[in-house]
Amino acid sequence: MPLSTSEETHHWTTHQRVCGIDEAGRGPLAGPVVAAAVVFPRHFTPSSAFSALGDSKAMSARNRERLTSLIMEHAEACAVAVIDNTTIDRINIFQATMLAMNQAAETITPLPSLLLIDGNRFNPALPIPYRTIVKGDAKVFSIAAASVLAKTTRDRLMRDAAELYPEYGFEQHFGYPTRAHTEAIRRHGRSPFHRQSFRLRQLGEK
């Protein structure tokens, strides 16, 4: 069943600017974590063109790219924040994810009046009310839109990294710990784009 803006509709009665936030890239061994924030116009009703919107990980790359264009066209505001792998190593992936989400929210102008966050944890940097929603990218329209923007942005960055480090195949696994990626690390070691703090049991790392 296509996602509707029913969750947003509930909050639009008391909030002018409801913002969905999601991230991409918590689990990979390489590359940044990326968060996106999306605000749709109050009482926005999505057309049938948005019927494929949902959890971005379950979509084809072609659908994600198509939906990215639609989201950018119809959103009232959207923002993306990128936290690189060296920062992830320095502050840990959870803190880096929180930083990315907050930076994306802070970039929205004017600021949102409510944040809808995918997941069950959030550390806010601004005094803005928020709700965490488990599996929100499959339930909430604006969170799903943020999920798509975050993933398409990160995928493009990983394709760029593949040109610098072709031996790792980033354009195929996007930094996740696939067998091919693990074998590439075994052969070549880690690149400057890898997260040095992430360990691989397959390689005997502790």
Score class of each variant (00 low, 15 high):
residue 146 A to D: 07
residue 157 L to P: 06
residue 53 L to Q: 07
residue 99 L to T: 11
residue 164 L to P: 00
residue 90 R to A: 14
residue 118 D to P: 09
residue 84 D to W: 06
residue 139 K to D: 07
residue 115 L to E: 09
residue 95 Q to E: 12
residue 129 P to E: 13
residue 127 P to Y: 06
residue 164 L to A: 11
residue 75 A to D: 11
residue 79 A to R: 07
residue 57 K to G: 06
residue 79 A to H: 05
residue 72 M to C: 14
residue 168 Y to D: 00
residue 44 F to A: 08
residue 54 G to A: 14
residue 80 V to C: 03
residue 94 F to C: 13
residue 132 T to W: 13
residue 170 F to G: 01
residue 111 L to A: 15
residue 162 A to K: 05
residue 116 L to P: 00
residue 108 I to C: 11
residue 103 Q to G: 04
residue 54 G to H: 11
residue 80 V to S: 07
residue 88 I to K: 09
residue 99 L to C: 11
residue 125 A to Y: 04
residue 109 T to N: 14
residue 101 M to P: 01
residue 103 Q to T: 06
residue 79 A to K: 05
residue 105 A to F: 01
residue 39 V to I: 15
residue 164 L to W: 03
residue 55 D to R: 09
residue 156 R to E: 13
residue 119 G to T: 08
residue 137 D to M: 12
residue 90 R to K: 14
residue 72 M to N: 11
residue 114 L to Q: 02
residue 157 L to H: 13
residue 52 A to L: 09
residue 74 H to L: 07
residue 127 P to L: 08
residue 91 I to P: 03
residue 103 Q to V: 01
residue 42 R to D: 04
residue 134 V to I: 15
residue 138 A to C: 14
residue 76 E to T: 04
residue 55 D to F: 02
residue 145 A to G: 00
residue 45 T to W: 07
residue 84 D to G: 15
residue 77 A to S: 15
residue 93 I to R: 06
residue 157 L to N: 08
residue 169 G to N: 11
residue 81 A to F: 01
residue 52 A to I: 00
